[in-house]
Every structure is written in C-alpha cells, then in structure tokens.
Design a binder for these strands. Structure first.
Lengths: 190, 190
DNA sequence: CCTCAATCTAAACGTCGTTAAGATTATAAT
DNA sequence: ATTATAATCTTAACGACGTTTAGATTGAGG
C-alpha cells in the first residue's frame, strides 16, 4: 500500500540515479529536489545523507573514479610481461576509451576538480576522496613499471598529460572525426 | 550629478568585469544581477545586450580566446626560421603558460565547451564563435609548418593533446610541484 | 521637434541550494 | 516489552538565481 516512510537505501540510490541523470539530461539538470523526487522521497531528503550538493557530487565522483580505476587495473592484468610500454599503452587506452564512451564524465570529474598533487612524491596530500584514489593508483602503477625515467615526476606527468589531453579533446561535444582515438594514442606514444 | 540613465559602454563593461569576477571570485560567483550592479546598472540591464547568461559567457570566452590566440601568434613571429619544431615548441609553451598564469580560464573555456571540430579538414563546421576562432587558428598555423605528417589530422591532434593535457593538469587547483611546466613540455616534445 | 528604436528600471515568476521544526521509524538499552 | 535515542524523512520557508514583462528614459534621424 503506502510506500514505507524510510527508503532503505537512499544514499546509494541518490548516487546512482544522480549519475544516470548526468548521462541522460546533463549535469546542469541535476538538482537536489529533482533527484530526491526521482528516488521517491521529498526534495529535502538528500540532505539527511549529504550536507551539501558538493558532497553528493563528490560521492558521485568517487563512484565514477572507482569504475575507471577498476578498468585500468584490469587492463594491466592482461599484460603478459610487465613490460612498461605495454602497460602504459593498455592503461592509456583504457583511460581514453572510458571518457570517449562516457563523454559527460570528463567535465563532471575535472571541471570542479580540486586536485592536490604532490609531484615531488612526498607523502601525499589531503585530496578530496575521489582524487585521493586517483592519485594513489597512478603512483602505485608507475612504481611497478620496469622502465623508470631518471626523474619519476616527469615520467608521470608526461604520460598523464598525453592521455589526459586526448581524453579531454575526445570528450568535447560534437567532435567529428573518422579515426578511433586508440589509434591516435598508439601513434603518439609511438 | 546623478549618473546618466544610459551606461554608454555596458556591453564591453559586462564582458571585462565578468572576466574580472571569474578571476577574483570564481565562476560560481558570477551572476547576471551582481554583474549588472557591478557595472552600475540594474540587475536586469544585461539582458538588453545578451539574451541569456550563456550568450554572455560565450562573449567572454571569445574575449579570452582572442587574447590566447594573439599570444600564440606573437610567439610564432619570434621564430627566426620557420622550422616546425621551434614553432610547435613556442606555441605549446605559450598555450601552457597562458593557463598556468590564469588557472580559472581552463575550465571556464572548456568545461562548457561545445566544440565542433571537423578533423577531416573539410570546410569547417558551425562552432560557437570563440572556438571557431580557436580551430581556424590551429589549422592555419599547422598548414604553415615545414614538417607535415603523412596524415595531418593525427599531427594536429597529437600536438594539441599533449599541450592541452599539460594545461589541464597545470590548471588544476592546488597542484604542488617544484618544476616549471615549460620544462616538462620541452621534455615531452623531445 | 517628433518619432522610433535602443537602453534601462522595477517587479514578478518559478527554480534552485539550504535550513528549520517537527513527524516517523529503526536501534538498542533497560 | 517499554522506552529513550538517533537516524531518516516531510513540509514550509528563506534568499539568490535566470529570466520575462511592462513601462520609463534617452539618443539618433527625419
């Protein structure tokens, strides 16, 4: 009969339905009220689980970053030898493909990004949770590579910049082209 | 004594004051009302010059892109010979430095970017004005280079991706590092 | 001088993020 | 089982926002 007063799993529902809305209607159409109603609760209910929209978006970012990291880590596992160029290549492909398949994720993740990166490799800083995950993963992978540049900072940044820039461009709306982004990446990384 | 009923140059004032607000208070604190008041007119006056906030932002983007393009073109002029590696290098540096010096410009320009790029080099598409400027300039410069890859599309994209990715990373808030981004770019472009 | 279009003001509409006060229910201690 | 406590939810409201409307003020051309 009447739906129960308590939702049961509102927190997870907000995150997942929120991501769904971003993918279907765009981030500009995601409001706390509408999201609450979409989950079957009132427009103020989300504030029982997130004290601000920013916190909710942060949780959604964490959810998305986790998916990306899983894909990248899985890609590494498929490498026969842990030869660094193969690892870098497969990771990079996964990174680019992820944003090509989900174009809205790029600006959702990085437009409001408040990344704190200590490129000096010191004990790491207080990133916002999704990006703590992001950075830690990057360092962990890079450390496992056979090939290490004389200065690891430059290695990480140059690797990341190439892949990230390609993802940024590929994520732009209405980019018309006739090649696959993975091919471009292969050419760039030589 | 009383200020005149008409502002005289409100359109330009809105654009410049708007950019100023973005640089000082951040884009999230830019509202049509406040911007009008900051220019000495009412909160609805901006709508006499831009029928939407989106149109105003577009004009501001155009203003910013023009500055970037001027800097890049000026950098090219300083090249002694039009050797392509030197041109690419100087342009890339200018591109990265621009966003390092104005970190808020990156997401302001690209977060909402509705770029339409025809990478097949056909007659170009109907970009939003700021990016029409952006794309045309890129093609024009690339055509002037001595060195041309067998497939020009890949050349443009790989060049742009590297530089753009570096600008994206360098523009992230709270990135702590101990090297200059220009040096990183030099290493990447070899 | 008169007209017309451009520019501006004041007031309003609906939506937004957020908060406050209180209702409902699960949890756990007695 | 009863009761207290904390978690979760609703309704109503606040101020700020983007935008629209109606009308006031002004500059420019005939």
């Amino acid at each position: 009969m009447g739906k129960p007063y308590h939702h049961g799993n509102l927190r997870r529902c907000l995150i997942e339905k929120g991501i769904e809305i971003i993918n279907t209607e765009g981030e500009e159409n995601l409001s706390m009220r509408k999201l609450g109603l979409a989950c079957g609760v009132s427009g103020a209910a989300p504030y029982s689980h997130f004290n601000s929209k920013e916190k909710l978006l942060e949780a959604m970012q964490e959810y998305v970053v986790e998916r990306l990291m899983k894909k990248m880590n899985a890609a590494i596992e498929t490498c026969e030898d842990k030869d660094s160029t193969e690892v870098i290549m497969k990771m990079g492909k996964e990174y680019v493909i992820f944003f090509v398949e989900n174009p809205d994720y790029y600006s959702f993740l990085f437009a409001r990004a408040n990344l704190k990166i200590d490129l000096t490799m010191g004990e790491n800083v207080d990133n916002t949770p999704p990006f703590q995950l992001f950075i830690e993963n990057a360092y962990r992978i890079y450390r496992k590579l056979d090939y290490v540049e004389e200065d690891i900072k430059y290695g990480i940044v140059s690797m990341w910049a190439t892949v990230h820039g390609l993802a940024a461009i590929a994520s732009m709306k209405n980019v018309t082209t006739d090649f696959k982004w993975e091919e471009v990446l292969e050419r760039i990384l030589k």
